[in-house]
Design a protein around this nucleic acid. Structure first.
Lengths: 198, 198
DNA sequence: CTGAATAATGAATCAGAGTTCAAATATAAT
DNA sequence: ATTATATTTGAACTCTGATTCATTATTCAG
């Protein structure tokens, strides 16, 4: 016998995040990922079926985590609609705050997966958007939100906006501090561009 | 002598938009682009240096058009800050409204170009964001906009939001009609999620 | 009509990177 | 220690698709 030493799967996954983020999925070379992970090229194929399945694995993990924290938040009834939305924003940022390359991966390589339309994360992604919509809809019904806002458009718009700001942060954390971004997004989405009691 | 027949460069460029949009830059095959354009594979290389230069060409054209309409708008002094912002939004949508594949290209393949950081469009892109900031800043100075909004964060946020909604529209124009999106974005950015005189 | 000169073709070339696998190595049981 | 079994290695293999270029077709000048 011989037992698998260390946690090669995690090493490879972490290395892949870095390399995918830096070089993009297609620019990334398996040999480079292996090198970064401290294993031989062939070892990558003991833990993953192929290059694409590494990407799948990473996105599955990411969307699952997102899904879990969203579900937890939706259940809570101690929060106002506004608080709930703001917590949703924060929970996204929390996923990435310690890992800029993961944010770059998330922002830049998502479209590979949408193109095929398969995989668990696809389901999570759709449900994720639906959950956002639901919170907005509830807020409107309870009179806490502006009824002229379309929940679906709002959710998509905000999701896109968050991605763009995450991207800027990941490329230059000093120029775009995450806490500033968190604050700015809340101000923009809650109050909009026009002065408050105009 | 022999003169170049037809408008092969345009055919190739248009074909490339379609194929890049459908298959992604890396998934797109030169032979497929040639076929779609009705020319031989080798002919592509008479009009473009290589595959990447086709993408460059398309993005240059796109960003130049964007830049031109933005500059025109910035010059106008007959518009309020709010009108100016809303015109900026519309001018983006106008660029794509007749061409969903172009929108997909714009949304999905931009990151290839950001990665290298070269090319004219890079300059346009940076200036584009600066122009957006400027309009917001002016609006705040003139008291027409909410002074708590950070102009840079706002511009990035909105740019990302527009991209996401453009993407949804391009994938399913029936489910996301462009006119609805235009209206929704204005409502969201101007008034925000909270009721108007809360 | 004839022949330069250029445009267009598409099969052949070639490079690069994902994947495989025979050999080497490490571990655990006896 | 020895052996059996599983893990790891990395050079070699393969396949795909971008790019090239010898050949063919077309146009225009004289």
């Amino acid at each position: 016998m011989r037992t698998r030493s260390g946690d090669k799967e995690k090493s490879i996954a972490n290395a892949a995040v870095k390399v995918f983020a830096r070089d993009g999925f297609h620019g990334a070379k398996i040999t480079r990922i292996a090198e970064e992970a401290g294993v031989a090229t062939g070892s990558v194929y003991l833990y993953f079926k192929n290059k694409e399945s590494i990407l799948h694995h990473l996105f599955s993990k990411l969307w699952l985590a997102m899904h879990v924290s969203f579900e937890d938040l939706l259940k809570r009834d101690d929060l106002s609609a506004r608080e709930k939305i703001e917590e949703l924003f924060d929970s996204i940022f929390n996923l990435f705050s310690q890992n800029p390359p993961l944010a770059l991966l998330f922002v830049n390589e998502q479209h590979h997966l949408l193109r095929e339309g398969t995989g668990d994360f696809m389901q999570y992604y759709v449900e994720f958007l639906r959950m956002g919509e639901q919170v907005v809809r509830d807020g409107i019904r309870k009179g806490e939100f502006n009824a002229s806002v379309d929940p679906r458009s709002f959710t998509n718009f905000v999701f896109g906006g968050i991605r763009q700001l995450l991207h800027q942060w990941a490329r230059a954390p000093r120029q775009f501090p995450l806490n500033t971004i968190r604050r700015d997004i809340k101000e923009i989405t809650m109050f909009g561009l026009l002065p408050r009691s105009g």
